[in-house]
């Protein structure tokens, strides 16, 4: 993780070419990436444990068992058989074995929402889930704040994530969608820059999903709601904030799945090296 100049140091006037080893990610980016990845994993799994304590989601300020839930995970018995189900807006899916009804490693049938392999801790404990969740919430919030401040100061945002007017053109956006769909990745110096879809995805995570997780989390705190009621109102009340918290978490899971898939398709070892050591071998190709 040292920042020694990379051999051979490219003369400033020449653009790097396909095959060159270049510095792609600076140390703060690499550090934050991994701290954040770990924090998000702990937050997700402990969050699913907290969800298990009341596996129903509502819109509005209040919401409890007698109120209408737009999403519900549970189990139901019909005749001799019992099923686990996920219910969204009145539609039910059988999720036996995964959601609502599953078997723990000791062979006991459990009627909790998310299964043991998806939660922290793996045995049911709302208290311990909260201990993990509320401690790592500080890691997420502190890390994001420091990273955004650094990104501004080091001009990472302005240089690498700023979407130019040209990139907003529908033709350009469409071209990028087509390139992604055909898995045509840029080569040579072009691979140093993020494509517009990448910029949009990272901006969505940095400026919408992660801050949204923190704000909806705070909106659920009765103490915060007293001194900052606007946070809760912004999302339409505490139970709405809880629903958005869950939906944003699922969106982050979706982002991570796409993100990991793309790095695997683009060359997993080279991508992994770049986010660990910072060094990235520019792909060779006709578009170099």
């Amino acid at each position: 993780m040292n920042e020694t100049p990379l051999p051979p140091p490219p003369p400033p006037q020449t653009t790097p070419r396909g095959g060159d080893l270049v510095l792609r990610h600076r140390l703060p980016t690499r550090l934050w990436h991994w701290i954040n990845a770990f924090a998000l994993l702990v937050l997700l799994m402990s969050g699913l444990m907290i969800f298990n304590a009341h596996p129903r989601l509502y819109w509005g300020d209040y919401g409890a068992n007698f109120d209408h839930a737009w999403l519900k995970v549970g189990s139901a018995r019909t005749g001799n058989s019992e099923v686990g189900y996920l219910e969204i807006a009145g539609r039910r899916w059988d999720t036996t074995g995964v959601l609502g009804l599953w078997t723990n490693p000791d062979g006991q049938v459990q009627r909790r929402a998310f299964p043991h392999w998806a939660t922290i801790p793996s045995r049911y404990s709302l208290a311990e889930g909260r201990i993990w969740h509320l401690a790592f919430a500080w890691v997420l919030a502190g890390g994001l704040l420091l990273y955004l401040l650094w990104s501004l100061a080091a001009r990472h945002l302005q240089r690498d994530l700023h979407i130019t007017r040209g990139e907003w053109r529908p033709a350009h956006l469409w071209q990028d969608v087509r390139d992604h769909a055909r898995l045509r990745f840029p080569a040579g110096a072009a691979a140093l820059r993020y494509s517009v879809l990448q910029k949009l995805a990272y901006a969505l995570v940095l400026f919408v999903l992660l801050p949204g997780m923190i704000l909806t989390g705070l909106a659920m705190s009765p103490a915060t709601d007293a001194w900052a009621p606007l946070v809760g109102e912004m999302f339409g009340g505490r139970q709405s904030a809880r629903s958005v918290h869950f939906l944003f978490a699922m969106a982050l899971v979706g982002f991570v799945l796409v993100h990991v898939t793309m790095t695997v398709l683009a060359g997993p070892l080279n991508e992994l090296r770049s986010i660990v050591t910072g060094r990235y071998r520019l792909p060779r190709g006709e578009r170099a």
């Binding site: 702990v42 043991h116 793996s122 201990i131």
Partner: peptide, 24 residues
């Protein structure tokens, strides 16, 4: 996907638990 037994063990460690609980 086997983080769980690790976390289950970690939180039984008084030092880890104390650190996490100090967030309170």
């Amino acid at each position: 996907g086997l983080l769980l037994p690790g976390c289950d063990r970690l939180i039984d460690n008084p030092a880890v638990r104390g650190t996490l609980e100090s967030a309170e």
